[in-house]
Simulated scan of single mutants.
Amino acid sequence: MNSRQDDLKQDLDAALQTRKELGKEYEAEIVDSFLTRLDARIDAQVDQRVADGLAQHGVGDGRRGGRGGWSSAGRLPVVSLVLAIPLTGIAAGANLTGMIVCWAGIVGVNVAAAVGARAEQRNARPGRSDWN
């Protein structure tokens, strides 16, 4: 038997001993408590197996913008273009210089985000440190 089965057997033995000590009046609570612990154990095993399967197939957890998710670096260009439309209208109302400054700011933010995302990816590689 492995350790998980030993732990489960010990939990079941403890529940049975508790039932013997407390009597039949507390049987429902004892069973509920045991089943709650069993459910938590099953959930943990399923979560671990799913995480292992995702890692085996190279799918991230979404925090770094894996295959299924949008990273912050992927959202920023879309958001900045959506915001660029009203900003351009406001800036063009002043003069051409205002519009150029507006677009220079939009481009600057996107370039900075792209450079930062690239540096983060480079540093996230295994065996990589800040000193390399």
Rank of each mutant, 00 (worst) to 15 (best):
R125W: 07
E21W: 00
F34V: 00
S33I: 01
V78E: 10
P77G: 02
P126K: 03
R63V: 11
R49N: 09
R63H: 07
A94F: 12
L22E: 09
V115L: 08
V46S: 05
V59D: 03
T97Y: 15
P86Q: 04
E29F: 07
D130F: 09
G66H: 13
A91V: 00
A40S: 14
V115D: 01
I30R: 01
N2W: 04
E25D: 13
I30G: 00
V107G: 08
V109K: 01
R41Y: 08
A113M: 07
V79R: 12
G23S: 04
D32A: 07
R125I: 06
G98W: 02
I90C: 03
E25T: 10
D52N: 09
G68M: 05
A28M: 07
D39V: 07
A124D: 11
M1R: 04
R19I: 07
P86T: 04
Q45C: 12
V101G: 00
V107S: 12
Q56H: 13
V50M: 11
D39A: 07
I106E: 00
A55L: 14
V82Y: 09
N132H: 14
T88C: 11
A114K: 07
L83P: 01
D13Y: 12
T97W: 15
V115I: 14
N110R: 06
D6V: 10
V82P: 02
L8A: 14
E21T: 13
R41G: 06
R4Y: 14
P86L: 03
S33M: 02
G127H: 03
G23V: 05
W131A: 15
R41T: 13
E27A: 08
R64G: 15
G89N: 06
W103C: 04
K20N: 08
S72T: 14
A44N: 02
W131R: 14
D13A: 13
R67A: 14
T97Q: 15
G62M: 03
A92P: 05
T88W: 02
P77I: 04
D52M: 10
R19L: 12
G65W: 03
P77C: 02
R75P: 01
D130N: 01
D43M: 09
V59Q: 06
D11Q: 11
L96G: 08
I85E: 06
